[in-house]
Design a protein around this nucleic acid. Structure first.
Lengths: 218, 218
DNA sequence: TTGACAGGTGTACATCTGTTCACTAATTTA
DNA sequence: TAAATTAGTGAACAGATGTACACCTGTCAA
């Protein structure tokens, strides 16, 4: 069956996903056209029609911004590092990240080792969330042990006191966030470890906020 | 500061969230109006303006469906347990027990205050499992905090070192199990508390073993 | 008792936005 | 080599959608 997606269609689907994540609402045809330098709304409409026909996208006719990426669409995008549902049939599953390879986007498929089911109360936005297996014991006083799984909402900002997931020099870490005097300090919750002060030159990326913790005792 | 949300505003914010989750794109003013039986788009616009002013929502002017719930908005909604389906037929849901009334069987419907979704790896046998909201801080060194939800497998036996749920004089407690010299001792994991020695006359019932812990940080 | 606020109504209108039509060029496939 | 497909262009238009204005009722606090 040759119901495959063309490069251009994939680019457009990816733009729809990114636009939605950045803005909280989908793009209009004119938004898509502006991004790709397409001067005709019909040119965009043609691509969307194909994406709908191939079941990568669903849309409501005669309704503005009524675009919604299907499960299949997300699977295609997961190859691009854009992902939501790992298992199409389980709405409560999140992709589970184990070892995170340096140099790759965190949601790269090489980092995903499975999925985990979590209660929706732990989720902000499921499509913007993932699960991460904790390594190390730096957060035990916050009740986060090695081997625990934390639920993470992808966001590039945090408030003081939030437990966050960050990437420092390629290493992924879970810590408590503190911003003080325009400086970011990552606080462990274990006397064995020192706070990490993020200097200007640090290769630091805030990945998200921890919104839940789960631990298996079987 | 009295920057609080009114009941009606919260209802509208909740509708926006639910609509977004169900449809993949936000509602229009007319969608919101139709849902609430409001005949004027200006009535809805007034509420949205207030939600924006109070920073529960952000919106783009002169742009359709350009609504996005803010972090603060999601925090408000988390108090409502804004959720996907938490239904009994959900294979990942367990009954959630909160306050346990003395004198009633623990699975009595009066004790069940809802349900919680858990990963199957935490389960021995789902039909013999339930979830329990933790009260008290006696187990914090085991990474079990007040308000956490523990997954419990119903069983009347335990091994040394198991974290168990037991009922003593009608009170439900979570502790570490130790059987020594034919005597049962329930060990807290907090220096503030003393071990509980179960005497022959104690009104003691072992209810089950803790097989998982979940904690919501939203 | 009065003013502020919440929660609207009804109407008009401007702008956003999607659909439709006729058309073209380049590439791919049979 | 011709047909099919991809990827658009340009224009017109219909409908969706948000904004703005004047207004109303009920509740609550000063």
């Amino acid at each position: 069956m040759k119901q495959e997606i063309t490069d251009r269609q994939k680019e457009i689907l990816q733009f729809i996903a990114e636009f939605g994540q950045e803005n909280g609402y989908p793009p209009s045809l004119r938004d898509i056209a502006a991004h790709f330098g397409i001067s005709s709304t019909n040119g965009v409409a043609g691509h969307l029609e194909k994406l709908v026909t191939k079941n990568f996208l669903s849309k409501e006719s005669n309704s503005s911004r009524a675009l919604s990426i299907t499960e299949k669409g997300w699977l295609v995008l997961s190859d691009e590092g854009l992902t939501s549902e790992k298992e199409a049939d389980n709405p409560f599953a999140l992709p589970l990240l184990g070892r995170v390879a340096a140099g790759f986007p965190i949601m790269h498929y090489d980092n995903i080792e499975g999925s985990v089911v979590v209660d929706p109360s732990m989720l902000r936005e499921r499509k913007d969330s993932f699960a991460l297996k904790v390594k190390g014991d730096s957060m035990i006083n916050a009740g986060i042990f090695e081997g625990d799984i934390v639920v993470v909402h992808k966001q590039i900002f945090a408030s003081n006191g939030d437990i966050v997931v960050a990437q420092i020099d390629g290493e992924v870490t879970v810590k408590t966030y503190l911003r003080k005097n325009n400086q970011i300090i990552l606080l462990p919750a274990n006397e064995k470890y020192e706070p990490i002060v993020i200097s200007q030159n640090s290769n630091f990326t805030l990945i998200g906020k921890v919104t839940g913790v789960t631990r298996c005792l079987n």
